[in-house]
Design a protein around this nucleic acid. Sequence first.
DNA 1: ACCTAGATTGGATAAAGTCCAGCAACGATT
DNA 2: AATCGTTGCTGGACTTTATCCAATCTAGGT
Lengths: 138, 138
Amino acid sequence: MSDLLERLRGRGWRMTAQRRVVAEVLAGDHVHLTADEVHARAVAKLPEISRATVYNTLGELVTLGEVLEVSTDKRAKRYDPNAHRPHHHLVCAQCGAIRDVHPTGNPMADLPDSERFGFTVSDVEVTYRGVCPNCAKA
Amino acid sequence: MSDLLERLRGRGWRMTAQRRVVAEVLAGDHVHLTADEVHARAVAKLPEISRATVYNTLGELVTLGEVLEVSTDKRAKRYDPNAHRPHHHLVCAQCGAIRDVHPTGNPMADLPDSERFGFTVSDVEVTYRGVCPNCAKA
DNA sequence: ACCTAGATTGGATAAAGTCCAGCAACGATT
DNA sequence: AATCGTTGCTGGACTTTATCCAATCTAGGT
């Protein structure tokens, strides 16, 4: 993840304690935190960090293509740091747990021209829904 | 759409002016209104209808499987009355326009067991993103 | 060490949705 | 047609999520 900071610096990002902390908090696979969760964890490392800064930083990371915004059906947006290996999501309908998945096939190829309504289609997002093993037990 | 009202009545839904109006407002293809938009249009037909009722009714329609909740990336959830013909969505990244699309292939079959993490997968939602002809012109 | 563009802060505000207590009315029954 | 129990409706308060902004601070170049 420190390569992330390198890359950002290369793009003229001014490095601050706050931004470093947000980047640290987001590291890892299967990480899909809400802005508030990011803020809570950031505060643990840097008590004075403000909510606004967390929102700003997340927004910038999304704009720069380093982090993906994931809208599962929950109320709050979630942020996915795994932007460089394309993947989709599997969501538990009961507890909201999210896993990264890599389906075979290419959904992009499955949309015929006749179904594109003249759009220039650039991206697909696939969300699988189901019940996770934990919730199935209960 | 009046068959919808029939079906609901058959399921023990008590019929009221408010519910009728909400159902009317939702009729049609490529309809993806936010709760607030539904409320605005409902008010035009029945001035006293309250926001809470619109939210309640939409929630019930979703529970009954008559309407789908669509989370594109906008802030507000949208409601899609076309629940009985399965379909996916194509969203303009600029203006937010939404079209119903029917891709070929079955994304469900593209998720191998090894990528299911023990989940019981029951549903897939595919969202294509791009730029619509209108926005492309500008 | 200094300077300035850019970043941070926290509080106000907005937008979307939920909750609740009291009133209204659907429709089954007689 | 009148009654009545149950369910639905209302409107306002409240919660959650997110954005805006003016004042203040700081990273990093010189």
